[in-house]
Each structure stands twice: as structure tokens, then as C-alpha cells.
Computed example of a mutant assay.
Amino acid sequence: MLLASVTVPANAHPHIFVDTGLEIIFDNQGKLTHVKVTWKYDDLYSLFLAEDYKLDPDHDGELTDLERDHLTGFDADWVEGYAGDLEVVLGGKVLTLSGPLEPTADMVDGRIISTHLREVSGTPAIEGDTVSLKAFDPSHYTAYDMTLPVKVSGRSDCTFQRVEPDIDGQLAQMQALLLTLDADADLEENDIPLIGGEFATDIRVTCPAL
């Protein structure tokens, strides 16, 4: 996702790139209970993490069991109010998710990979409905790319589709908004929206009534 050549707010340029995968998990009653999230960090950020945590001194791109244990949970200690860069919407309502559960971490071919579970509050029934899942940083400091597997577990009757963002269209809208402002205008005071969600792949899961 390349934004450097476009005149947009400075914080709209991503600094960390994360390949992302999702597992949408249903219980034996067909209710949505959890979403498992996989984050695979880019090479440069993985290198920074390895240096910070003193990992992989032999530079073979893999971790020992001790290093793996040391790294696990490094990205699961969230500050209050952080939504985990995941939005799950059902019937126009954003569902409440727990903080990260059962975190894991590893290094594969030099890239740090982590997983965690998010429990869905209320375990809603998805009966003839569509649930939308987007992974994004509202400020777009981190760019999440839905390049890893997306799957549904616990139900075999659900289907899902990927809706890719209209990046060119969203950038054009942002440019049009910015052109209406003075160069030193405060974006928040002028209600310029955060743009992360507009650049996110929308995973839509539809399940029939049981």
C-alpha cells in the first residue's frame, strides 16, 4: 500500500506492515464465539523486534524454545481503550471483543509471527446474517494486509467473501477534503476522519439459519 506520493496527513503513511489472517470460530450451537488473529510482521520491524528482545543471535531466522517463550505476549499487553485493530460488525453494530487471549509468538524465515484469540461478547447467533470483519489501524500507522489464510471453524454452511477497498477513490476523497483547508489547519478540529478503515479489506461471513 503505497501512499508516499500523495498529499495526505503525515500519520496516513504506514510505518509497520503486517500480513494478517483470521479464523472465525463458532461453537457447536452455531454461535460466533471467537476470532483468532494472526499477525506476520514485515522484515524490518521483525529485525527491530529481534534486536530489542535479543533473539536469533545465530541469524538462522528461527527461535529456540526459550526465545519463543520470551517473545510470547510481546504484542498482547494492550493499553486501556486499544481495540486491537480489529472491527467486527453484525447488523450495523460493532461487536464487543475481549482483549488478547492465548497469545503465541514465533519467527519463521526471519519474520515474527504472533497469534491471539478475541472472545466475542454475547456469542451472537449468525442466522441468515452477514458479519463483517476488518483489520485496521484507524490512524493507518500500521498497515494490515489480509494476505494470510481466512477460514471459518465450527460451521461448514457459512460462506465468506473479500471486499477490497477502493484505494484510489478514498485517496481522491481525502485530497479533496484537504484542499478545502489551510495548510496549518488542525485536522481534528475540522472533522477530518481517520482513514485506516477505508483502506481495509472487508471479510464478510454469511451463515444460514440453523
Rank of each mutant, 00 (worst) to 15 (best):
Q29C: 00
V108T: 15
R118M: 06
H140C: 04
L95M: 10
A105V: 10
V108S: 05
P100F: 08
V88Q: 05
Y45I: 14
I195E: 12
D77I: 13
D42Q: 00
D58H: 06
Q170C: 04
L44V: 15
L63D: 09
Q170G: 10
R118V: 08
T142D: 05
V8T: 09
T38I: 10
D69Q: 15
L22G: 07
A183T: 13
N28A: 01
G84L: 06
L194F: 10
D166M: 15
V163T: 03
K40I: 01
G92W: 03
E67K: 08
T159P: 15
D56A: 07
A10D: 14
W78V: 02
D168Q: 15
C158W: 09
V18N: 10
T130M: 03
T142C: 10
L148Q: 03
A172G: 10
D65C: 03
F48C: 09
L117K: 04
H70M: 14
L2T: 11
E51W: 08
V79I: 10
K134I: 00
P14V: 02
D137V: 01
Q175A: 11
G196R: 10
K40T: 09
A209L: 12
A135I: 00
T104K: 00
G84K: 12
Q173G: 07
Q175L: 09
G92F: 04
E67Y: 08
K54R: 14
H116A: 12
E198G: 07
G197E: 12
S121Y: 01
